[in-house]
Amino acid sequence: MADLLGRLITGKVTDENETDYFVQVEGTTFRLDKAEIKKPLRMNGTFTGFAYENENHDMQMTRDAPKSQIDRYGFGTVVRSQRTLGVFVNIGLPNKDIVVSLDDLPDMMELWPQQGDRLLIALREDAKHRLWGVLADGDIYQAIAQPANKRLQNSNVTVTAYQLKLVGTRVITDHFELGFIHPSERETEPRLGEELKARVIGVHDDGTLNLSLRPRTFEAIDDDSAMLLAALEHSEDGHLDFSDKSDPAAIKAYFGISKGQFKRAVGHLMKARKITQHDGGLWLADEASETSKTTK
């Protein structure tokens, strides 16, 4: 059995029934589902496939080898977790999920991968011939990484968290660029394997990224601010004859909000540098800039 499971192996076709072929390798017989085979196999011919123990504890082979194998890494999708064991990962086998041991997962269970999260794993076989998932370490991610282009600055990227540390979260993008999220650039700590939408806030000379999970300022504005900004954007010249000195009743009639809400929205947009306030009115920041240029 040693050096058979979790690998592509070749054996002799020794028997068949209505649903399966039987392939023998070094005295061990593996089931092979006939539904996978397009042309019938010859008795005493050879077949090469991926060997594993299925969920019914039968030895099985499949022609559709997963990317995750012994000493070979591939991404799998987490399907469930078990507090006393670890997380179960679908690597593409028809009737077998691979367990990543709780010993290899974060101490805090809330940081464990959840259903739908992705893990980059290889396989290992223990002394009882059971297959386990092995998480890729930093060296593996470095080996598969691609350098990021400077043009990614301020762009949005999709990333997967692969290493959780007190100093921050290490991630890899869908295009295999490596990135880092400092604790100050996130609201909560991501889970291991969690897919995240991030913004590039820095591109290092070595091709790695600094990322933020915080929204851009204009994305973070509240409903009142968004409404006020939209009103300015739809005005003829990016200008409205309202200010923090305007009559509360006039503000309520035009915007449908109180003067207090109006002042908070104005303050928020000014802090975000989206608008300016002068000459008794509000101006879009760009429009105010253009007006200033034409009056000089």
Rank of each mutant, 00 (worst) to 15 (best):
T208P: 07
W283N: 10
E177Q: 11
R130I: 10
W283V: 06
I140C: 04
S246K: 04
H204E: 14
L213T: 05
D224S: 09
I98A: 05
K271I: 07
T173L: 04
H175F: 12
E36W: 08
F242D: 07
Q82L: 04
H278T: 13
Q146N: 13
F88R: 07
L229C: 05
F50Q: 09
R273Q: 15
D223W: 02
G49I: 00
M61Q: 04
E236Y: 11
R264S: 08
S246P: 00
D107H: 15
F30H: 04
R63G: 12
R72M: 12
Y254N: 13
I9M: 10
R130T: 13
V171Y: 09
L32I: 04
D104C: 03
A288Y: 01
L152N: 02
K271Y: 15
H182I: 06
V79G: 12
G116W: 10
F218K: 00
L178G: 00
L119P: 13
T208Y: 05
T158G: 02
D223P: 01
G280T: 04
P94K: 11
S246E: 04
T294P: 00
D244F: 06
H204L: 08
M227D: 13
D241Y: 12
Q142H: 07
G202P: 01
A127P: 00
I70R: 08
G133I: 06
I121D: 01
T169L: 05
P190K: 14
Q163G: 14
Q115R: 13
R124V: 14
L4D: 10
G74E: 09
N156K: 11
A161Q: 01
D107M: 13
D139M: 05
F50S: 07
D241E: 11
R216E: 02
T10S: 13
D15M: 03
P183G: 05
G92Q: 10
S155C: 04
T62F: 00
S246N: 09
S292G: 01
T291W: 15
N56R: 15
I70P: 01
E233G: 07
G280C: 07
F30E: 01
T48K: 07
M43I: 06
D286M: 09
G92V: 12
